[in-house]
């Protein structure tokens, strides 16, 4: 109990003694962890978006303007009997036009420029496995009466690619910041070990156990890491609260909403990584600077 008290008071003294370094350490740690948390969120976001969109994804088979009734009904039976297909919906020119009108209701010029009947009729096909587009494409590509076959998945993939590269950039930034944070932790621990070298020498001399000598230093780094993760979490929460739910509302409505639960889930991740990485760095540093 008393030793615990000693260790904890040493931690506080240690953090305070070198306060500018401590602040630098906490800030870099916080930025790095925030980046990590952001990319984690992005990852979960992309995942849930994929779930959401891929479920509703269709292959659109647009028909020729001169398609005959026979060709159309033959294609329909063929599609309905296809083992790759889960569901087939026919969309007439009329329906396509209605959909077009509601979709671009706020662009009347565009709507006026397009006349009913100009938009092609199509079969909207849901696949049992959305990955099997290629097979469908190959199978029906040369069928009479078909103009083009469009995989909506491809369009979504572009969006996901962009989100994916944003996520990668955040991860890259997180790791660069993490290196800076690690160096700062190592440096802070060195300075701390140096400023306590007399105490450490005496402790070693009289036979204090290694964990007892090292614990204050390691905990000092862990506390800084945890404070960093709290700040990073506050930053993420502010980002979610003020930007995503605030000024960027319109954009985020387009994507799936980010829940507070997901944001909250990032805290243990950031705290865990922050604490653990600091502890390991401190411990490794001490291996070199506090030889027994």
């Amino acid at each position: 109990m008393q030793r615990l008290k000693y260790v904890l008071s040493e931690v506080m003294v240690g953090l305070w003694r070198n306060v500018t370094m401590t602040i630098a350490m906490i800030i870099t740690m916080a930025v790095s962890l925030a980046m990590l948390g952001a990319s984690g969120l992005m990852y979960m976001q992309v995942d849930s978006m994929k779930d959401f969109y891929y479920k509703n994804i269709e292959v659109a088979i647009f028909l020729d303007a001169e398609v005959t009734d026979a060709q159309r009904s033959e294609l329909e039976t063929q599609l309905k009997g296809d083992p790759l297909v889960r569901e087939v919906i026919y969309e007439s020119k009329q329906q396509a036009y209605e959909k077009f009108k509601t979709m671009y209701a706020d662009a009347p010029d565009l709507v006026n420029a397009v006349k009913e009947g100009q938009l092609p009729e199509s079969f909207r096909v849901r696949l049992k496995d959305p990955e099997q587009f290629k097979q469908i494409f190959d199978k029906y590509e040369n069928t009479e009466g078909i103009e083009t076959i469009v995989d909506q998945r491809r369009l979504l993939d572009k969006i996901f690619n962009i989100l994916g590269s944003v996520q990668n950039m955040a991860l890259a930034a997180a790791s660069v910041m993490a290196i800076a944070a690690l160096l700062l932790v190592g440096n802070t621990i060195q300075v701390a070990a140096y400023s306590k070298r007399r105490e450490v020498a005496v402790m070693k001399l009289v036979g204090a156990s290694n964990w007892f000598i090292q614990a204050p230093f390691v905990l000092e780094a862990v506390v800084a890491g945890l404070i960093g993760s709290i700040i990073a979490f506050a930053g993420l929460a502010a980002f979610k609260g003020f930007l995503l739910d605030g000024s960027l509302r319109d954009l985020t409505d387009l994507l799936t909403r980010l829940s507070w639960g997901d944001v909250l889930l990032m805290f243990p991740l950031m705290a865990g990584v922050g604490g653990l990485v600091s502890a390991i760095t401190a411990w490794v540093t001490l291996r070199f600077y506090l030889r027994v």
Partner: peptide, 16 residues
């Protein structure tokens, strides 16, 4: 080693 050192006392020229 730490435990072992508890059975040994030590003094130096520079007091420490």
């Amino acid at each position: 080693i730490p435990h072992f050192r508890r059975s040994i006392g030590c003094v130096f020229q520079d007091f420490r």
